[in-house]
Design a protein around this nucleic acid. Structure first.
Length: 586
DNA sequence: GCCGTTTTCGGCCCGACTGTTTTCAGTCG
């Protein structure tokens, strides 16, 4: 059972307890345990094997005992006992927008929908035949809401990639900025925290005329449906099917609004607990002491008022940032402008490549690097296909490519102008199933360094995969482990490996782990980035570009690094050329 | 059910919006 499934189970228990009228704090305990599991940097099952279950915040002796039983026997008797009173269909409805535990229970019970299979279809059928409006506590409006909710549920897509969310946000922000009543417009939520994927889009507007802002927002041509519109907030569905929320606040109170809706939920709950000790109450309106509300124009002042430094949004996940802000020990996070070169690119160089080639020439990729103001760039490609070439031929191909690159490189490295740039010769080389590299030593020796990656047999067992990676990574020329977990957001989980062992190895052998900036990768994931830092590992942020314009995606890799608490010195491609070749070529 | 550098008992985050209610419950973030 993976973390997502475990979190789902804990949420189901919470829902069941809610209907049973259990103690609200017990209900909340299961919810917060679920959130905590969702956010864990390691598999909960692994932590259990190491006897560290209760080190997960929100998991105490009781839930730990249940999870222990789950891992040992595959089920939890107590949970099964709890679930027994409820129609299995109920738990299927919990993910439908607008339906919470109470409604899910009432509906399934009253309509006799029992089976989990087809639960949502059966509910839709009941709604469309007017059965729901007859039930006590429901009416015509709620029946309509349920139909809408079910329709949204059935066509619900994955969470947006951060790139898509950024674009959609820009569309709304530029529209809202044209409305005179909007004094400031900012993004909120997971987008502002630069999370790898974003569910709903949240916007904040500073205004003295909220009604005008809400009107402008809900009448945006890209709005397909208005879900809610109050005095100060509104919620709509964009034509793309995405939900977009707007919240308004006066300029005097804008800092508190930004803070509140940037979240995360766990971060805010922790802040409010701290505030209570100071007899303060936090909300999106400001900070209350007794009945007296103090407003804040900026987040900096808001955080200051509760005794801590301003916290960069990327860190607001309640994973130690609040304590660090109180002690003024927050890291100075790496920034895009610190990056001095891209080390993982692909060109259209003509050999039969093991994987997709790029679309631009070596020269075009170098030109783009110059435009981005880089000091150096490593020109790479996938290794020649082992299916199409003999080992000798692979070496010959690399010789030929190296010769060509030397010529191009000469013209750039000797330019006595601002267009000068240092060029490195690299390849992304497959780590084969047996742990060997897909290029013979003689071929590797022609290169400055290589990036080694897994592109096949990703379902290998954890121990075998770990050994495979260590074996490939241990070659003296192998300096960077590319897109380490192999995950593809919304498509494929990363493969299993013992990351602690790999990080320990990387630290000891002076090897580097990649943060791949490709929007559907963002790999190493931020939680593992933070883990790597604990082992003293240095990382490299690359774009893995297959076209020159992809090189502009570097900021997304920087986002990941920032969420992983990286400072400049944790990232090797912030180093000068003289220093980085010392790391890569030695 | 969790948690503790004042506590191992007695606390536990805050508010907006909606619909179906005659004053509040449910859901959401």
């Amino acid at each position: 059972m993976n973390n997502r499934e475990i979190a789902g189970l804990l949420r189901a228990v919470s829902a069941a307890y809610e209907i049973k009228g259990e103690n609200v704090f017990r209900i909340r305990a299961y919810d917060s345990a679920a959130d905590s599991v969702d956010q864990a940097s390691r598999e909960v099952k692994d932590l259990w094997e190491e006897g560290k279950l209760t080190e997960i915040p929100g998991i105490g002796p009781n839930i730990a005992g249940h999870l222990e039983e789950l891992f040992k026997t595959g089920k939890v008797k107590h949970f099964q006992e709890v679930f027994k009173e409820f129609p299995p269909a109920m738990f299927e409805l919990l993910d439908v927008p607008g339906i919470g535990p109470k409604s899910a229970f009432k509906l399934t019970k009253a309509l006799g929908i029992n089976r989990a299979e087809g639960a949502t279809q059966n509910l839709l059928q009941a709604a469309k035949t007017g059965k729901i409006r007859m039930l006590e506590g429901f009416g015509e409006e709620s029946e309509l809401q349920i139909i809408k909710g079910l329709e949204e549920f059935s066509r619900r897509e994955d969470r947006m990639l951060l790139t898509a969310a950024t674009q959609l946000a820009e569309e709304f922000v530029s529209y809202m900025k044209k409305e005179k009543a909007c004094l400031r417009v900012e993004t909120l939520g997971s987008l502002r925290r630069r999370a790898p994927t974003v569910g709903d889009l949240d916007l904040a507007v500073a205004t003295r005329k909220p009604e005008q802002v809400i009107k402008a927002f809900t009448s945006y041509p890209g709005v397909k449906k208005i879900l809610a519109a109050g005095d100060n907030t509104a919620r709509v569905i964009h034509t793309s099917g995405r939900q977009v929320d707007v919240k308004t606040q006066t300029p005097q109170g804008f800092g508190a609004l930004l803070q509140h809706f940037t979240g995360s939920k766990a971060h805010n709950i922790h802040l409010r607990e701290i505030a209570i000790e100071k007899e303060l109450s936090l909300s999106e309106h400001g900070i209350k002491k007794g009945e007296k509300l103090t407003e804040f124009t900026s987040e900096e002042k808001f955080y200051q008022a509760i005794g801590m430094k301003w916290i960069p949004p990327e860190l607001r996940e309640d994973s130690g940032e609040i304590e660090a802000a109180q002690k003024d020990t927050l890291p100075k996070l790496v920034e895009l402008k610190d990056i001095k070169g891209d080390l993982h690119l692909h060109t259209n160089y003509s050999w039969i490549s093991s994987h997709d080639a790029g679309v631009n020439s070596m020269k075009e990729m170098i030109e783009k690097s110059v435009k981005l103001g880089y000091e150096y760039v490593a020109i790479g490609d996938h290794n020649p296909s082992t299916n199409s070439y003999s080992p000798d031929r692979i070496v010959a191909e690399i010789k030929e490519r190296t010769r060509l690159l030397e010529d191009i490189k000469y013209s750039y490295e000797n330019k006595n102008t601002t267009r000068a740039i240092k060029v490195l010769n690299t390849l992304e080389v497959d780590i084969l199933n047996n742990g060997k590299l897909a290029v013979p030593d003689e071929g590797l020796s022609l290169l400055d360094f290589v990036i080694v990656s897994i592109h096949s047999s990703m379902r290998m067992g954890k121990d075998q995969m770990t050994q495979r990676i260590l074996s490939g990574f241990s070659h003296p020329k192998a300096k960077i482990l590319g897109h380490p977990t192999g995950r593809l957001l919304n498509k494929r989980e990363g493969f299993e490996a013992d990351w602690d062992t790999i990080f320990r190895f990387a630290k000891e052998k002076c090897k580097f782990i990649e943060i791949n900036s490709w929007p559907s990768r963002l790999d190493l994931p931020d939680t593992l980035v933070r883990r790597a830092l604990q082992f003293g590992v240095q990382l490299v942020i690359d774009t893995d570009s297959h076209a020159s314009e992809h090189m502009e995606l570097m900021r997304y890799g920087v986002d990941v690094a920032r969420r992983g608490w990286c400072v400049k010195s944790d990232i090797i491609n912030t180093l000068s050329y003289a220093k980085i070749i010392d790391r890569l070529l030695k």
